[in-house]
Structures are given as structure tokens and as C-alpha cells.
């Protein structure tokens, strides 16, 4: 803050340690997943190979890994779409006062605070009493939404707090209907944030564990399969699995970041274009 003070170096060193703390163990898993065929769960490396990645394709080694990966991917995609749509809609609603707004807000915040295992247990019990089968695409989907929607709504609050209403007024003055204003003015401007909500929706769902546990039914999602494997798999195939799913998460994040950046540039370019014309 005041040039290169000792405090600044200390801060940088502390931050570097924190990053090492975050990424160190993940890198250990990454390296160990390339263990030789006779290698174990810890260092030293007993040769190098991609043997354990090959083992991921064998059903007897890791169970139905591909099935649970696909389920998690599909569920993540549905949760992402639903989180964006429902959060946007609710975000628009909360810009005006309506009766029940306070109550709804508190319930949504409570959804973040209530321990996940209670939500999961409640949904599981409810389905049991109603004599319905729990499944990842029904009760599992609902359980995930109780976790992603509060984040989505809070982001929409932040977005609309900073939103300049003049853009909408101009559109309305020029005769645009409410739907047109939303589609051609509001959504393009907040698009980067909507992509952020989407990313959060997908990754939170893709990695969700505790809320899914009792609401998932017989076909498991990926985090639940992995959790099951931790008790009975004692080979580096577990690490190969960790490397693959973490790599996949990183790839998803990268795609979203690129999309956000592209949208931000496009919005900025359009805005300067509009300003230049008027």
C-alpha cells in the first residue's frame, strides 16, 4: 500500500503459502495418478505410466464411473439452466416490492444456513412417506436447487443493485415492450453475470455431496460414487479418478471464464457504439 514495505513482502509470502496450501495436495494427487502399475498410494513414484487412467475404463476397478459421470454432467447442466432462469426471474421480482418478499428472502437465506444433511434427510423422508422413489433427476434435482438458488439470488441482488435503470427507461421511451426491454437491453447487459451464475450452478451441482446423499436414489452421482470408492479402493486408480474429475472442473471453469470475458468485451463494444451514435 505504501510502496515496497516489509509488510508488503510479508503479505505476498503469506499469500504464496496460502496458494501452496490450496494447490499442493491437489498436485500430489495429480503426480501420483501417473504411478507405475506396481505403485502405491504414496510417494515414491514406482515408475511412471498411464496405467491407472486405463483402469478407469474397467468396470471392475471403479464400478460404474462412466454412468455416474454422465449423470452428474446431465444433472449439472439442468441445474445450471434452472438456476440461471429462476434466479433471473426472482431477481427481477425483487426489484419491486411485493407482499411476501421478506419471507421468501429469509427462507432462501435459511437454505444456505441449514446443514445440508438435514435438507437431504428431509427430502428423503418426504419422498418415503409419499411413497415416491427418490432419483437423481427428481429429488436430487430439487436438493441441488436448494443449494444453488440462494447463491444465484444473492448474485442477482448484487447485479441489480448496480444496474443503471436509465437503459430500460430509454428502451421504454422508444416504445419497447417489457419483454423486448428484458430481451434486448437487460439480459445483454447482465449477460456476464448470468454466465457466472451458470458456472456456479453447474460446479456446485457437479460437486454436491451432502444434500444429494439421501435424495439420490439408487443411481449415484459422481461425488457419491467417489465417496463410496474411498472406503474400498486402495490403488492409485482413485487418484486417476481425482485427476480426471478435477481436470474436468478446471476445463469447465476455463470455458466459462472465456465466455464471460467475450461477453464483457461485446457489451463494452456495443455500449461505445451506442454512445458514439447518440
Amino acid at each position: 500500500m505504501h510502496g515496497r514495505t516489509p509488510g508488503c513482502y510479508l503479505g505476498t509470502a503469506f499469500f504464496a503459502l496460502f496458494v501452496l496450501f490450496l494447490y499442493g495436495p491437489l498436485s500430489a494427487i495429480f503426480v501420483l495418478s501417473f504411478q507405475g502399475p506396481d505403485g502405491g498410494l504414496t510417494f515414491p513414484m514406482n515408475g511412471w505410466s498411464v496405467h491407472w487412467f486405463g483402469a478407469l475404463l474397467e468396470r471392475q476397478a471403479v464400478g460404474d464411473f462412466q454412468g455416474s459421470f454422465l449423470r452428474s454432467f446431465e444433472l449439472g447442466a439442468v441445474v445450471m439452466a434452472a438456476t440461471v432462469a429462476i434466479s433471473l426471474s426472482a431477481g427481477l421480482a425483487f426489484r419491486r416490492r411485493f407482499r411476501g418478499a421478506g419471507l421468501l428472502f429469509y427462507v432462501v437465506v435459511a437454505s444456505l444456513i441449514i446443514p445440508s444433511i438435514l435438507v437431504s434427510l428431509g427430502i428423503g423422508l418426504l419422498f418415503r412417506i409419499l411413497d415416491l422413489d427418490t432419483a437423481w433427476w427428481s429429488s436430487g434435482l430439487g436438493a441441488h436447487l436448494t443449494w444453488t438458488l440462494p447463491f444465484g439470488l444473492l448474485i442477482m441482488f448484487a447485479v441489480f443493485n448496480r444496474f443503471d435503470k436509465a437503459y430500460e427507461e430509454v428502451a421504454r421511451d422508444q416504445g419497447a415492450t417489457g419483454a423486448q426491454t428484458l430481451r434486448h437491453v437487460v439480459v445483454p447487459i447482465i449477460a456476464p453475470s448470468l454466465v457466472g451464475v451458470g458456472l456456479l450452478g453447474f460446479t456446485l451441482s457437479y460437486d454436491e455431496f451432502a444434500r444429494t446423499l439421501l435424495a439420490v436414489g439408487t443411481d449415484l452421482t459422481l461425488p457419491l460414487s467417489i465417496y463410496g470408492m474411498t472406503t474400498n479402493i486402495t490403488t492409485p486408480v482413485l487418484y486417476a479418478l481425482g485427476t480426471v474429475t478435477t481436470g474436468f472442473s478446471f476445463a469447465v471453469i476455463a470455458v466459462f471464464l472465456v465466455a464471460t470475458r467475450w461477453l464483457q468485451r461485446r457489451t463494452a463494444a456495443r455500449r461505445s457504439h451506442v454512445t458514439a451514435r447518440t
Binding site: A85, I86, S87, S89, A90, L92, A93, F94, R96, R97, F98, G100, A101, L104, V107, V108, A110, S111, I114, L118, V119, L121, G122, I123, L125, L126, S139, G142, A143, L145, T146, L149, L153
Partner: peptide, 20 residues
């Protein structure tokens, strides 16, 4: 506003309030 908030309200009612 009610219609816009309805999807959110329905989801939290069905999968949070009723389960708890």
C-alpha cells in the same frame, strides 16, 4: 412480481420448507 418470484418460491417450498 409474484409470477416472477413463483418458481423460486415453489422450489424452496417443495424442497426445503416441506422437507424440514
Amino acid at each position: 412480481a409474484w409470477l416472477q418470484a413463483a418458481p423460486l418460491a415453489l422450489v424452496v417450498a417443495a424442497f426445503l420448507v416441506v422437507p424440514i
